[in-house]
């Protein structure tokens, strides 16, 4: 078992296999590192930076770091890192148009869940109020571009049998937006549409003809902070 790696996160002993991604190993060891763009088993993008941890005094995204012998003691839940993560959440909130009261994903939204976890009362940055369009051309999906946080989960994961992505980025910098392939999306299956909605960490991808399925009080983050399932798994 020479490929077994031992290291600590905030003093807690963890074990994993060499080369495994830190964020996945942490979850297996009952340590929650927040993610927005990462999805286990999918090639990491490292785009949202919310999983930033400190390894050997350097900031690293846990979703792109394969563990090895040099990991040492990793910092995760320090006040400094929590504030960095809170700032990222706040930045994402002001960059898009996140009107939680009017969003179907409210209560099940990962971005909102992190807002609750870090007790975001108000973002420290000014609101951008950028105007983006809503693409409702697909018979199965709404694409609400105002809510996209550019995690690339849908681009990386939602593909047809030939491997073609239903979603893609359009533009660069300030004009960057998520877009949907009109022809492909016209024939998207119910299952894939549902999967697209489920993997979207915010309310940018919504399945048509269903909505507000879970009542208030029974949604994912109504009663327990995001990551509670991971933290409880090892207790």
């Amino acid at each position: 078992m020479s490929d077994t790696i031992k290291f600590t996160i905030d003093g807690k002993e963890c074990t994993g296999k060499k080369g495994q991604l830190l964020v996945d190993v942490a979850a297996e060891n009952g340590v929650y590192i927040p993610v927005l763009c990462h999805w286990k088993g999918v090639k990491p993008a490292g785009s949202c930076r919310i999983c930033t941890v400190k390894v050997n005094n350097r900031y690293v995204t846990a979703c792109t770091l394969p563990i090895d012998e040099n990991c040492g003691d990793i910092e995760n839940n320090t006040p400094e890192l929590q504030d960095i993560r809170k700032a990222i959440v706040e930045m994402l909130f002001v960059e898009g148009n996140h009107f939680c009261p009017a969003c179907e994903k409210s209560g099940d939204c990962d971005l909102q869940g992190l807002g609750y976890k870090y007790q975001m009362m108000v973002p420290r940055f000014p609101y951008a109020f950028e105007r983006r369009e809503l693409d409702a051309k697909s018979p199965k999906i709404f694409l609400e571009k105002n809510r996209c946080i550019f995690c690339k989960r849908c681009i990386r994961m939602i593909k047809d049998e030939k491997g073609r992505s239903y979603f893609a980025f359009k533009g660069r910098g300030k004009t960057l937006e998520i877009s949907m392939d009109e022809k492909l999306a016209a024939n998207i299956s119910d299952e894939l549409a549902q999967e697209a909605m489920d993997i979207c960490p915010v309310g940018a991808i919504l399945k048509k003809e269903v909505g507000f399925v879970n009542p208030i009080g029974k949604r994912k983050y109504d009663n327990e902070p995001i990551g509670s399932d991971i933290e409880k798994s090892q207790q």
Partner: peptide, 17 residues
């Protein structure tokens, strides 16, 4: 500031832009 509208404009702010 009490409520979403006071904090971030809320639904009326959907006209922003």
């Amino acid at each position: 500031s009490v409520g979403e509208c006071a904090i971030m404009g809320g639904l009326p702010a959907m006209r922003n832009g």
